[in-house]
Structure formats: structure tokens, C-alpha cells
Design a protein around this nucleic acid. Structure first.
Length: 402
DNA sequence: GTCAATTCACATGAAAGAGACCACGGTCTAGTG
DNA sequence: CTAGACCGTGGTCTCTTTCATGTGAATTGACGA
């Protein structure tokens, strides 16, 4: 219907000078050539991993740092260099990287070991085999590969949270049973406290060495950002102060470099879409809002229906009445919502857990309080600004087809 | 007025069940030579 | 005779339920001043 208009749109889109020269360098999948402000960490990790070049087993290492502090990047970088050296000298070193957070890939004991075995070219079915069997396959694969094997387990805290620390115990002990290979583990985690929850045996062997990544400060972020921006954008596209503002925003959020880059990328996209020839400071504010909005939207729509119904109950109540929302109120409303959409309601026990999960996702914030004689409950508050509540409610209604 | 006991309304933990998915081996069946 | 279909068994995994135990301060009620 609007063909001429659309054609014109594409025309004008193509005729405007693109702001981006290479957008990929701002995307999180991008691996930069050089890593800034992490020299100390790089050297430390390299020092720990170096013995593998002599065929010795490097100490197990535990790497900790907040999100976006460059842990994964740095560790992978060192691993890559190590591998290069090893190949150059004909030393058998294999490095396996595995993100334990990836659903359906490495988030349980079975899947983790199966995935590791697959890395050695073994075919393991996604389910159906006894876990012990998979261990055996993995053992023999590792042993026949020989040499030093470094396992990089990213987001290892997620794994332990979901599957317990037995896996780590088994993995750290695996060397006792191997003839020709040596396995060492590098665990990467956002969560330092998680170490304390581990079985002491596992804890001591996993963290023979520990490296902590401090968050980037605003100046360092700005430095990183400016290097990437130079590649990403054309000459003179960024208004003065844009980088500073981006860095400041991200520094506020515990120095998350990933977020910082995303912010700049989205700001660029917004500017481009609105036919600006510069990325301006105001675009950053818009970008910040947009990122937050998209994140929320993604979380809302990807939740299972039960969580959506629960959240819907929370939103409705907090829109209707002032003050705090409690578990009991939510559960009552939740049950009636279930009735309306003919869904079998879950028990309160489960809903209680769902509320805790929503808290983890950062949509609501809960606090367990005691109201004395009137019992103990969760005090629930939405961590979404009040103006966006109606929108949120609409989205949920739609998702639940209310 | 003070202080310990009580009480509420859930939180929190542990264990176990249901149902989906899958591999493997044995049995049956139909098609082929 | 053989390939493929079709069980039954035994395994993992996720989401729940069930049962049991924990918890922190407002309230209560006994007690002493």
C-alpha cells in the first residue's frame, strides 16, 4: 500500500552517510586485538598457565570479577596465546572453553561432561546414558588426547547453583585416574561468595590460585570506549562528551564495559535511525532507556506462563493500592488469575519460589520481613518505574491472553 | 512497666513424584531374494 | 534373511508437590514494683 513511501524511505536511508564504519566492534561477540587496563591480570594468568608449556599441570585457578570486567575476554586471550605458543613448539596443550550458563548445553553434570567429551570428538546423546558412562567416555578421550588440558569453565557459579559441587569434585580429582593427561581447571565467576558455599575439599583444590578483576573505573572505560569508537564510527561522528557520558553511565553500574559498549552502539543506532549526522549526548539517555525497556520486554515475554501470571498479580496489586505488597495477597490474586485463564494454580510454595526468581531477574525486589504477630512474609516492590507499569500490565495481559 | 512465651503467616529445605525426552536391546513384522 | 517398526527398561532433566522445619517481632499474660 505504501510502496512509494517505503521506496523513498529506503532511498533516503541509503543516501545518508552511515554513522557506523564497523558496528561489529561494539558488539559483545567481538574480541579486540589488545586488551586495555588488564596487564596485571594478563601477566598473572599467563604466569599460572605457563607450566603447561613444559608439560606440567598448571595450578587450578579461580577468576572472579563483576559482570563486564573483562574476565572472560582476558582468560580467553591468554589461553589463545598459550595455545599458539604450544602449537609452535609442538607441545600437546588443549584448551576447552565452556560457558556453564548456556541452557541445555552445560548446565548439569551430565551435560557438562557430555559436552566436554564432544569437544574431543566423541558422540554423546543428549540424554539416556548413565552419567557414569559419560564420565568413562570422557576419561578415555582425555587420556588418549594426552598432554595438558585446560578447562575454562565460565560462569561456574551457575553450574554449582544448579547442579551442586559434586561435578567440580569429580573434575578436580580426575587427574588421579589419568595416565597420560593432566587436567587443570580455570573457573570464572561473577560471584565471589559462591566459593564459600563449596565443599572445602573442592574449594581448596579449585582455588589453588585466585585472581580478582576489579571493576573498570570511568577513566579506564573511557579509554576502552574511545579505542573501540575509533574503529566503529566514522570521523567526527561523535559529539564531544558522548564518550565521557557513556563511561560515566557504565561506571555507575559497577564499571560494566559490556554495557558501556552496548550503550554507545544503541545510541549510534538511534542517531542513525533518526537521520542525525552525529551521535549526541541526548541519544545516550534515549539509548539507556531503550536498553532497559528492551531488557524488561525480553524478560517478560520469555518467562513461563506461571511466572507471568504471578508477575501480573504483583503488578495489578501494586497499581491498585499504595504501600507494600505481600506474598499472601499476590497468591490470592494469582489464583483468581489462574481461574480466569483456566490454568491449574501452583501451590504457594512454588509461587514463593517464583517470586524469589523474579527478584533474581531484577524485575521485583523482595525483602523478607516479619510483621510480628501477623506473621512473616515477603515485602514485594516492583523495581520498574511507576510510569511504565500500565505498559507492563498490558504486555502481560497480552502474553496471558487475559 | 518488664520480660518471657506464644503465635502468626509465611520462608526455607529436603525429598520425592510426574511426565517429557532419549538410548539400547529384544521381539515382531513385512518385504526381499 | 534382513531392515525397520515397536515395545519395555532404565537413564536424565525439569517442574512441582508434599512434608517438615525454621523464623522474627507483635502480642499476650504473668509477674513484680
Amino acid at each position: 500500500m505504501e510502496q512509494r513511501g517505503l521506496g523513498g524511505f529506503f532511498d533516503s536511508y541509503l543516501s545518508t552517510k552511515p554513522l557506523f564504519r564497523n558496528k561489529a566492534v561494539l558488539q559483545s561477540a567481538h574480541t579486540p586485538e589488545t586488551i586495555f587496563h588488564r596487564d596485571r591480570e594478563i601477566n598473572a594468568i599467563a604466569g599460572i598457565m605457563a607450566p603447561s608449556l613444559r608439560g606440567d599441570k598448571p595450578s587450578n585457578l579461580f577468576v572472579y570479577g563483576k559482570a563486564g570486567s573483562g574476565k572472560t575476554l582476558t582468560v580467553k586471550h591468554v589461553a589463545r596465546e598459550l595455545k599458539k605458543q604450544a602449537v609452535g613448539r609442538g607441545i600437546p596443550v588443549s584448551i576447552l572453553y565452556l560457558n556453564c550458563k548456556l541452557k541445555k548445553i552445560a548446565d548439569t553434570e551430565y551435560r557438562l561432561i557430555a559436552q566436554l567429551a564432544r569437544e574431543f570428538g566423541k558422540a554423546i546423546p543428549p540424554t539416556g546414558l548413565p552419567t557414569e558412562e559419560v564420565y568413562k567416555v570422557f576419561h578415555s578421550a582425555v587420556d588418549s588426547a594426552g598432554g595438558v588440558i585446560v578447562l575454562l569453565l565460565d560462569e561456574i557459579d551457575e553450574l554449582v547453583k544448579k547442579a551442586g559441587d559434586e561435578i567440580l569434585y569429580n573434575l578436580t580429582r580426575i587427574n588421579d585416574e589419568l595416565q597420560s593427561a593432566k587436567v587443570s581447571i580455570i573457573g570464572i565467576s561473577n560471584d565471589l561468595v559462591f566459593l564459600d558455599a563449596l565443599d572445602p575439599r573442592v574449594k581448596s583444590s579449585l582455588s589453588e590460585e585466585e585472581i580478582i578483576f576489579p571493576p573498570y573505573n570511568a577513566i579506564q572505560l573511557q579509554d576502552i570506549l574511545s579505542h573501540r569508537a575509533k574503529e566503529a564510527f566514522g570521523e567526527g561522528v561523535l559529539e564531544a562528551g558522548v564518550l565521557e557520558k557513556c563511561a560515566a553511565y557504565a561506571a555507575r553500574e559497577h564499571g560494566d564495559a559490556r554495557r558501556c559498549l552496548e550503550l554507545l552502539r544503541v545510541a549510534g543506532e538511534i542517531a542513525e535511525r533518526n537521520n542525525f549526522d552525529k551521535v549526541m549526548i541526548k541519544h545516550i539517555d534515549t539509548a539507556d532507556e531503550k536498553i532497559e525497556r528492551d531488557r524488561l520486554m525480553a524478560i517478560l515475554t520469555s518467562q513461563p506462563r506461571q511466572s507471568q501470571a504471578t508477575l501480573y498479580a504483583v503488578v495489578s496489586i501494586s497499581m491498585k493500592k499504595q504501600g507494600m505488597v505481600f506474598t499472601g495477597d499476590v497468591y490470592e490474586l494469582y489464583k483468581s488469575v489462574c481461574g480466569r485463564i483456566s490454568m491449574r494454580p501452583l501451590t504457594q510454595r512454588r509461587v514463593s519460589d517464583i517470586l524469589a526468581e523474579l527478584d533474581m531477574l531484577g524485575i521485583i525486589s523482595v525483602k523478607v520481613i516479619s510483621k510480628g504477630r501477623y506473621g512473616r512474609t515477603r515485602e514485594i516492590a516492583l523495581s520498574v518505574p511507576a510510569p511504565s507499569l500500565p505498559r507492563m500490565k498490558r504486555i502481560l495481559e497480552e502474553a496471558l491472553s487475559l
